[in-house]
Design a protein around this nucleic acid. Sequence first.
DNA 1: ATTTGTGTTGAG
DNA 2: TCAACACAAATG
Length: 314
Amino acid sequence: MNGSSTDDQSTTTETTSTVAAPVTMTPPIGSAGSVVLDQEQGLEAESRKLPSSRFKGVVPQPSGRWGAQIYEKHQRVWLGTFNEEHEAAKAYDTAVQRFRGRDAVTNLKLLPLDTEEARLEASFLNSRSKAEIVDMLRKHTYNDELEQSKRNKSLQKNPFTDRFGSGKTANAREQLFEKAVTPSDVGKLNRLVIPKQHAEKHFPLQIGNSSKGVLLHFEDIGMKVWRFRYSYWNSSQSYVLTKGWSRFVKEKNLKAGDIVSFQRSTGPDKQLYIDWKTKSASSNMNPEPIQPIRPVQMLRLFGVDILSGDNDNT
DNA sequence: ATTTGTGTTGAG
DNA sequence: TCAACACAAATG
């Protein structure tokens, strides 16, 4: 049934190949019915015994392939069959993270904390039901769907048309507020003053945290995450972004009068976003654009996204 | 004709 | 919860 195609799941060089490519020790010759296989470690008497997998959630198949399964409430959930043992292990890893959370024990998956890849995949995982994830794994389409999700996310992040055009919020992000930065906001003070009105409305501080401050995560247009310390300064009775702010000013080459804007995801994740633009023109006028936006690429992505409608999501 | 993946059991 | 085993159901 799934003999070939849709094989592009892992990063290994496993290309599409039918069962006729047995690189491993498992001989796919004939089904494990009663075929006697000598040469196999001299275990003639147990020739029909299947080899155990060293991976959790992975079981051998009589065909020589590997099945993946996970248990939930005394019940097995089948995750599909795979040509390679590690492919099945990967499927289990994905499933177990969706079923039991980020801290679940996995077989192979390194847990690159704090990387954008990890964030995107975590977001993608939770945006789908368990059944949907299982379906993707069984059909070997999980990686494709994940990549497509990433593309959509990056499109969704592009606010240029929205904010410079009509200012309407058609995205899954809501505009919180904007501020024209002052000379001191981009100067040596290394801090951004957040107007009290907006600060108290959108970034409320706990009573205990007001002096100490909290760490806020913002994502920019290039999906780069910025971490700013946010606190209240009693001396000036103002709310400020301090640690981390100067790096943003430097990288974006912010000048006095430029506009910084803050958004927040309308979804349940409450992800915060930060962006900027020059006073009277688009940010493309930046002499050193670190994250150059290419309208051409954006359009191309749009086209691909719209045209690739061959998914059979339930 | 093959292979899947479910039914089932027993160990941990 | 987990995998080993057997085999009816599913698939080609």
